[in-house]
Amino acid sequence: MVLDTPTLYFRAFFGVPDTIRSPDGMPVNAVRGTLDFVSHLIATYKPDRLVACFDADWRPAFRVEAIPSYKAHRVLEEAPEGVDVEEVPDILTPQVPVIEAALDALGIARAEAPGFEADDVLATLAERWSAGGHGPVDVVTMDRDLYQMVEDARGIRVLNIGKGVTKLEVVTDDTLREKYGITGGEYADFAALRGDPSDGLPGVAGIGEKTAAALISQYGDLAGVRAAAGDPASALKPAQRKRIIEAAGYLDAAPTVVRVARDAPVAEHDDLLPREPKDAVMAEMLAEKFGLKGAVARLTKVMAER
Protein backbone atom coordinates (compact mmCIF):
# COMPACT_ATOMS: atom_id res chain seq x y z
CA MET A 1 0.00 0.00 0.00
CA VAL A 2 1.22 3.47 -0.90
CA LEU A 3 -0.26 6.56 0.75
CA ASP A 4 -0.76 9.99 -0.81
CA THR A 5 0.21 11.55 2.49
CA PRO A 6 -0.46 15.22 1.61
CA THR A 7 -4.00 14.23 0.64
CA LEU A 8 -4.40 12.38 3.93
CA TYR A 9 -3.24 15.25 6.09
CA PHE A 10 -5.16 17.91 4.16
CA ARG A 11 -8.30 15.80 4.46
CA ALA A 12 -7.62 15.25 8.17
CA PHE A 13 -7.02 18.96 8.70
CA PHE A 14 -10.32 19.97 7.15
CA GLY A 15 -12.26 17.01 8.54
CA VAL A 16 -11.14 17.00 12.16
CA PRO A 17 -11.90 20.07 14.36
CA ASP A 18 -8.90 22.27 15.12
CA THR A 19 -10.02 22.26 18.73
CA ILE A 20 -8.02 19.00 18.93
CA ARG A 21 -4.85 20.35 20.54
CA SER A 22 -1.70 19.28 22.30
CA PRO A 23 -1.30 19.94 26.05
CA ASP A 24 0.48 23.22 25.24
CA GLY A 25 -2.31 24.37 22.90
CA MET A 26 -0.89 23.51 19.46
CA PRO A 27 -3.55 22.30 16.99
CA VAL A 28 -2.92 18.62 16.16
CA ASN A 29 -6.12 17.80 14.31
CA ALA A 30 -4.25 16.89 11.10
CA VAL A 31 -1.80 14.70 13.02
CA ARG A 32 -4.47 12.78 14.89
CA GLY A 33 -6.65 12.44 11.80
CA THR A 34 -3.79 11.20 9.66
CA LEU A 35 -2.70 8.59 12.20
CA ASP A 36 -6.29 7.40 12.58
CA PHE A 37 -6.67 7.19 8.79
CA VAL A 38 -3.54 5.03 8.60
CA SER A 39 -4.85 2.85 11.43
CA HIS A 40 -8.11 2.26 9.58
CA LEU A 41 -6.35 1.42 6.32
CA ILE A 42 -3.99 -1.06 7.99
CA ALA A 43 -6.81 -2.68 9.97
CA THR A 44 -9.00 -3.03 6.89
CA TYR A 45 -6.48 -4.01 4.19
CA LYS A 46 -3.58 -5.48 6.22
CA PRO A 47 -0.71 -4.51 3.90
CA ASP A 48 2.68 -6.21 4.24
CA ARG A 49 4.45 -3.18 2.77
CA LEU A 50 3.42 0.39 3.45
CA VAL A 51 5.00 3.65 2.35
CA ALA A 52 3.81 7.17 3.13
CA CYS A 53 4.67 9.26 0.05
CA PHE A 54 5.40 12.99 0.20
CA ASP A 55 5.96 15.88 -2.22
CA ALA A 56 9.61 16.80 -2.64
CA ASP A 57 8.33 19.33 -5.18
CA TRP A 58 4.58 19.95 -5.28
CA ARG A 59 4.88 21.87 -8.60
CA PRO A 60 7.74 20.25 -10.55
CA ALA A 61 9.63 22.42 -13.02
CA PHE A 62 9.20 19.98 -15.90
CA ARG A 63 5.41 20.20 -15.58
CA VAL A 64 5.37 23.99 -15.20
CA GLU A 65 7.65 24.30 -18.23
CA ALA A 66 5.18 22.24 -20.26
CA ILE A 67 2.07 24.11 -19.03
CA PRO A 68 2.80 27.27 -16.98
CA SER A 69 -0.73 27.34 -15.53
CA TYR A 70 -0.14 24.01 -13.78
CA LYS A 71 -1.24 24.53 -10.15
CA ALA A 72 -0.49 28.25 -10.54
CA HIS A 73 -3.65 29.17 -8.62
CA ARG A 74 -2.27 27.43 -5.53
CA VAL A 75 0.95 29.45 -5.33
CA LEU A 76 1.12 31.70 -2.27
CA GLU A 77 0.79 35.30 -3.44
CA GLU A 78 3.28 36.55 -0.85
CA ALA A 79 5.98 34.09 -1.95
CA PRO A 80 9.27 35.58 -3.21
CA GLU A 81 9.43 36.02 -6.97
CA GLY A 82 10.49 32.82 -8.69
CA VAL A 83 9.76 30.67 -5.65
CA ASP A 84 6.68 28.42 -5.74
CA VAL A 85 5.33 28.17 -2.20
CA GLU A 86 2.06 26.30 -1.87
CA GLU A 87 -0.72 28.10 -0.03
CA VAL A 88 -1.24 26.04 3.13
CA PRO A 89 -3.24 26.99 6.24
CA ASP A 90 -0.94 28.46 8.87
CA ILE A 91 -1.93 25.98 11.55
CA LEU A 92 -1.42 22.99 9.26
CA THR A 93 2.21 23.73 8.34
CA PRO A 94 3.72 23.00 11.81
CA GLN A 95 1.76 19.75 12.03
CA VAL A 96 3.46 18.13 9.03
CA PRO A 97 6.84 17.59 10.79
CA VAL A 98 4.95 15.98 13.69
CA ILE A 99 3.26 13.58 11.27
CA GLU A 100 6.65 12.73 9.78
CA ALA A 101 8.21 12.19 13.22
CA ALA A 102 5.32 9.96 14.33
CA LEU A 103 5.55 7.82 11.19
CA ASP A 104 9.32 7.48 11.66
CA ALA A 105 8.98 6.47 15.31
CA LEU A 106 6.35 3.89 14.45
CA GLY A 107 8.51 2.47 11.66
CA ILE A 108 6.24 3.38 8.74
CA ALA A 109 8.46 4.14 5.76
CA ARG A 110 8.39 7.57 4.12
CA ALA A 111 9.48 8.34 0.57
CA GLU A 112 9.89 11.25 -1.79
CA ALA A 113 11.90 12.00 -4.92
CA PRO A 114 13.78 15.25 -5.71
CA GLY A 115 11.93 17.25 -8.35
CA PHE A 116 8.79 15.10 -8.24
CA GLU A 117 5.37 15.06 -6.63
CA ALA A 118 3.93 12.48 -4.28
CA ASP A 119 1.87 11.15 -7.22
CA ASP A 120 5.08 10.21 -9.01
CA VAL A 121 6.42 8.46 -5.92
CA LEU A 122 3.18 6.52 -5.54
CA ALA A 123 3.32 5.47 -9.19
CA THR A 124 7.01 4.55 -9.07
CA LEU A 125 6.59 2.36 -6.01
CA ALA A 126 3.46 0.71 -7.40
CA GLU A 127 5.33 -0.02 -10.62
CA ARG A 128 8.40 -1.24 -8.75
CA TRP A 129 6.45 -3.53 -6.44
CA SER A 130 4.33 -4.93 -9.24
CA ALA A 131 7.35 -5.66 -11.40
CA GLY A 132 9.12 -7.22 -8.43
CA GLY A 133 6.27 -9.59 -7.64
CA HIS A 134 5.20 -7.75 -4.48
CA GLY A 135 1.64 -7.06 -5.63
CA PRO A 136 -1.23 -6.58 -5.44
CA VAL A 137 -0.82 -2.87 -4.73
CA ASP A 138 -3.34 -0.43 -3.25
CA VAL A 139 -2.81 3.25 -4.11
CA VAL A 140 -4.50 5.47 -1.51
CA THR A 141 -5.38 8.93 -2.83
CA MET A 142 -8.23 11.17 -3.90
CA ASP A 143 -6.37 12.36 -7.00
CA ARG A 144 -8.10 10.94 -10.07
CA ASP A 145 -4.87 11.24 -12.06
CA LEU A 146 -3.70 8.10 -10.26
CA TYR A 147 -6.48 6.17 -12.02
CA GLN A 148 -3.96 5.76 -14.83
CA MET A 149 -2.14 3.28 -12.59
CA VAL A 150 -5.16 0.99 -12.30
CA GLU A 151 -4.52 -2.34 -13.94
CA ASP A 152 -6.51 -5.40 -12.93
CA ALA A 153 -4.08 -7.78 -14.61
CA ARG A 154 -1.31 -6.63 -12.28
CA GLY A 155 -3.48 -6.15 -9.21
CA ILE A 156 -3.02 -2.38 -9.02
CA ARG A 157 -6.09 -0.54 -7.80
CA VAL A 158 -6.83 2.90 -6.35
CA LEU A 159 -8.54 3.41 -3.00
CA ASN A 160 -10.18 6.80 -3.54
CA ILE A 161 -10.74 8.56 -0.22
CA GLY A 162 -12.65 11.47 -1.74
CA LYS A 163 -15.72 10.61 0.37
CA GLY A 164 -13.66 9.74 3.42
CA VAL A 165 -11.32 6.95 4.45
CA THR A 166 -14.12 4.89 5.95
CA LYS A 167 -16.27 5.38 2.83
CA LEU A 168 -13.53 5.03 0.22
CA GLU A 169 -14.20 3.76 -3.28
CA VAL A 170 -12.18 0.80 -4.57
CA VAL A 171 -11.34 1.68 -8.17
CA THR A 172 -10.53 -1.12 -10.64
CA ASP A 173 -10.63 -1.36 -14.42
CA ASP A 174 -14.25 -2.48 -14.11
CA THR A 175 -15.02 0.65 -12.07
CA LEU A 176 -13.48 2.85 -14.75
CA ARG A 177 -15.31 1.07 -17.56
CA GLU A 178 -18.58 1.57 -15.71
CA LYS A 179 -17.87 5.21 -14.84
CA TYR A 180 -16.11 6.45 -17.97
CA GLY A 181 -16.10 3.67 -20.55
CA ILE A 182 -12.31 3.42 -20.47
CA THR A 183 -9.60 1.50 -18.58
CA GLY A 184 -6.76 2.68 -16.38
CA GLY A 185 -4.35 2.45 -19.29
CA GLU A 186 -6.46 4.96 -21.23
CA TYR A 187 -7.08 7.34 -18.36
CA ALA A 188 -4.14 9.73 -18.87
CA ASP A 189 -5.08 10.47 -22.49
CA PHE A 190 -8.71 10.91 -21.47
CA ALA A 191 -7.66 13.31 -18.68
CA ALA A 192 -5.52 15.34 -21.07
CA LEU A 193 -8.49 15.86 -23.40
CA ARG A 194 -10.90 16.63 -20.56
CA GLY A 195 -8.56 18.89 -18.59
CA ASP A 196 -8.70 19.56 -14.86
CA PRO A 197 -9.35 23.12 -13.60
CA SER A 198 -8.23 22.11 -10.09
CA ASP A 199 -4.73 21.59 -11.52
CA GLY A 200 -4.83 24.50 -13.95
CA LEU A 201 -5.21 22.26 -17.01
CA PRO A 202 -7.65 23.78 -19.51
CA GLY A 203 -8.35 20.68 -21.59
CA VAL A 204 -9.77 21.03 -25.09
CA ALA A 205 -12.54 23.63 -25.30
CA GLY A 206 -15.97 22.09 -25.67
CA ILE A 207 -14.81 18.56 -24.84
CA GLY A 208 -16.09 17.43 -21.49
CA GLU A 209 -15.83 14.16 -19.66
CA LYS A 210 -18.33 12.16 -21.72
CA THR A 211 -17.01 13.35 -25.06
CA ALA A 212 -13.38 12.77 -24.06
CA ALA A 213 -14.18 9.24 -22.95
CA ALA A 214 -16.11 8.53 -26.15
CA LEU A 215 -13.26 9.82 -28.31
CA ILE A 216 -10.61 7.77 -26.51
CA SER A 217 -12.84 4.71 -26.69
CA GLN A 218 -13.42 5.21 -30.41
CA TYR A 219 -9.89 6.12 -31.50
CA GLY A 220 -7.82 4.22 -28.94
CA ASP A 221 -5.62 6.96 -27.51
CA LEU A 222 -4.76 10.64 -27.75
CA ALA A 223 -2.61 10.12 -30.83
CA GLY A 224 -5.53 8.36 -32.52
CA VAL A 225 -7.90 11.21 -31.67
CA ARG A 226 -5.47 13.78 -33.05
CA ALA A 227 -4.92 11.72 -36.19
CA ALA A 228 -8.68 11.56 -36.69
CA ALA A 229 -8.88 15.34 -36.33
CA GLY A 230 -6.39 15.70 -39.15
CA ASP A 231 -8.16 13.18 -41.38
CA PRO A 232 -10.98 14.73 -43.44
CA ALA A 233 -12.47 11.26 -43.90
CA SER A 234 -12.84 10.55 -40.16
CA ALA A 235 -16.20 10.53 -38.43
CA LEU A 236 -15.33 13.44 -36.13
CA LYS A 237 -17.84 16.25 -36.02
CA PRO A 238 -16.54 19.44 -37.65
CA ALA A 239 -16.68 21.40 -34.38
CA GLN A 240 -14.73 18.70 -32.54
CA ARG A 241 -12.18 18.48 -35.34
CA LYS A 242 -11.66 22.25 -35.24
CA ARG A 243 -11.26 22.38 -31.47
CA ILE A 244 -8.78 19.51 -31.35
CA ILE A 245 -6.66 21.04 -34.11
CA GLU A 246 -6.74 24.45 -32.43
CA ALA A 247 -5.61 22.87 -29.15
CA ALA A 248 -2.51 21.34 -30.75
CA GLY A 249 -0.09 23.29 -28.53
CA TYR A 250 -1.88 22.26 -25.37
CA LEU A 251 -2.16 18.63 -26.49
CA ASP A 252 1.57 18.53 -27.29
CA ALA A 253 2.33 19.51 -23.69
CA ALA A 254 -0.50 17.92 -21.71
CA PRO A 255 0.82 14.33 -21.59
CA THR A 256 4.01 15.52 -19.85
CA VAL A 257 1.88 17.06 -17.12
CA VAL A 258 -0.87 14.47 -16.80
CA ARG A 259 1.13 11.25 -16.94
CA VAL A 260 2.66 10.27 -13.63
CA ALA A 261 6.32 9.31 -13.61
CA ARG A 262 6.80 5.60 -13.04
CA ASP A 263 10.57 5.87 -12.75
CA ALA A 264 11.10 8.74 -10.32
CA PRO A 265 14.39 8.54 -8.34
CA VAL A 266 12.88 7.03 -5.20
CA ALA A 267 15.65 5.68 -2.99
CA GLU A 268 15.56 2.04 -1.95
CA HIS A 269 14.39 1.68 1.62
CA ASP A 270 12.87 -0.82 4.02
CA ASP A 271 9.18 -0.69 3.20
CA LEU A 272 8.06 -3.73 5.19
CA LEU A 273 5.44 -2.70 7.75
CA PRO A 274 6.70 -3.67 11.22
CA ARG A 275 4.55 -5.23 13.90
CA GLU A 276 5.87 -2.96 16.62
CA PRO A 277 7.18 0.62 16.72
CA LYS A 278 10.71 1.14 15.44
CA ASP A 279 11.41 3.59 18.27
CA ALA A 280 8.91 2.96 21.08
CA VAL A 281 10.50 5.59 23.34
CA MET A 282 10.15 8.30 20.68
CA ALA A 283 6.60 7.20 19.85
CA GLU A 284 5.66 7.46 23.54
CA MET A 285 7.34 10.85 23.86
CA LEU A 286 5.51 12.24 20.82
CA ALA A 287 2.22 10.82 22.09
CA GLU A 288 2.76 12.55 25.43
CA LYS A 289 3.97 15.87 24.06
CA PHE A 290 1.26 16.29 21.42
CA GLY A 291 -1.67 14.63 23.14
CA LEU A 292 -1.74 11.69 20.74
CA LYS A 293 -1.81 8.78 23.17
CA GLY A 294 -5.02 7.33 21.77
CA ALA A 295 -4.01 7.71 18.10
CA VAL A 296 -0.55 6.22 18.65
CA ALA A 297 -1.98 3.36 20.71
CA ARG A 298 -4.56 2.54 18.04
CA LEU A 299 -1.97 2.52 15.28
CA THR A 300 0.46 0.44 17.34
CA LYS A 301 -2.33 -2.08 18.03
CA VAL A 302 -3.39 -2.54 14.38
CA MET A 303 0.24 -2.89 13.30
CA ALA A 304 0.66 -5.76 15.77
CA GLU A 305 -2.63 -7.46 14.93
CA ARG A 306 -2.67 -7.35 11.14
Rank of each mutant, 00 (worst) to 15 (best):
R177L: 14
G107S: 09
D48M: 14
G220T: 06
A105W: 05
R306N: 09
P238M: 01
V266A: 04
F37P: 00
V2P: 02
V88P: 02
L168K: 02
E127C: 09
E284V: 07
E268A: 13
E246C: 08
D199W: 01
R74A: 06
A188V: 05
E305V: 10
P114M: 10
L125N: 02
Y219R: 05
L215D: 05
A295E: 02
M26F: 12
P202M: 13
K293H: 12
L8I: 06
E284K: 12
D174W: 10
I244Y: 03
D138Q: 13
Q148N: 08
S69V: 10
A56H: 14
P68Y: 01
L272N: 12
G132R: 05
E78A: 07
Y219F: 15
A123C: 05
A191M: 04
K163D: 15
I67P: 05
V83T: 12
A223W: 12
A43F: 06
G107A: 10
A101P: 10
G208C: 08
M149N: 09
L159W: 04
V140S: 05
T166I: 13
G208H: 08
I91C: 13
K278D: 08
A123I: 03
A212P: 03
G135E: 10
G15V: 07
E169G: 11
V158S: 07
A30G: 06
G107Y: 07
A131N: 14
Q218Y: 06
K278Q: 12
A52V: 04
V2R: 01
R144S: 15
A253P: 00
D152C: 10
D24P: 03
E86G: 08
P68A: 08
T7D: 11
F290I: 08
V137G: 05
F37V: 08
D90V: 14
V296R: 01
R154S: 15
L201M: 10
A253C: 07
H269D: 11
G208E: 08
S198L: 04
K301H: 15
T256M: 08
K179A: 14
Q95C: 08
T166L: 14
L286Q: 00
I20R: 15
E209P: 00
I244V: 15
K46E: 15
E151I: 06
V302K: 07
A126N: 03
K167P: 01
A253D: 10
A283I: 08
F290H: 15
T166A: 14
A52S: 12
P136S: 04
G107P: 06
L193Q: 03
A66R: 07
Y250A: 09
D104K: 13
V83A: 06
A153T: 11
G224F: 00
